[in-house]
């Protein structure tokens, strides 16, 4: 995957947080992981990708980050339902925004949200994923890109 492709998703996550009330987000250096050991925090929103690129993009974050993020977008109800809704919406927004670079053939699914251990995220074992670390407030999260062309 090219640096240019990764930059599209880095720009997407920065753009998302810059539309909240706490805009100061930092993105770390992306790194590769084996798909038998996927990166995951408490809650994950996964978007399936089809078209010229195939695979998935997911946003994964600890519950406490998502609670603060809800407050930061003006949502005072930090219930579990809204935490799941938000993690899916972040994943959807980052993936959807990528179409400005990849075009309308970059097809995205509706989000699937999961909670719990990393072993619940099933990724193709023959591929590796790029992890983009995200630092917001005192919390860590990640955008993970598993795509093949």
């Amino acid at each position: 995957m090219s640096q240019e492709t990764l930059q599209v998703f880095i720009d997407g996550v920065v753009n998302y947080f810059q539309h909240t009330n706490d805009k100061d987000v930092k993105v770390g250096t992306p790194y590769l992981v084996e798909n038998n050991n996927p990166a995951a925090y408490d809650v994950t929103g996964i978007i399936g990708i089809s078209g010229p690129y195939r695979g998935c993009v997911y946003f994964t974050a600890p519950r406490i980050l998502l609670k603060h993020l809800l407050l930061s977008i003006g949502e005072m109800d930090t219930s579990n339902e809204h935490i799941f809704d938000l993690v899916g919406e972040v994943a959807n927004t980052i993936s959807g925004n990528a179409r400005s670079r990849f075009g309308h053939e970059f097809m995205i699914s509706v989000p699937v949200m999961i909670e719990g251990a990393p072993n619940q995220i099933h990724l193709p074992s023959r591929m590796r994923s790029y992890v983009i670390p995200v630092y917001w407030k005192a919390y860590h999260a990640a955008v993970v890109i598993c795509l093949e062309q």
Partner: peptide
């Protein structure tokens, strides 16, 4: 109001009858 930010999608929505397009994320 959509995260799909490519021009073709915006044009298709307008052709179907939408009058405006706002990309997510958005401010109040």
């Amino acid at each position: 109001i959509s995260a799909l930010s490519d021009k073709a999608t915006g044009i298709e929505a307008l052709k179907k009858g939408a009058r405006g397009f706002l990309c997510k994320p958005f401010t109040d």
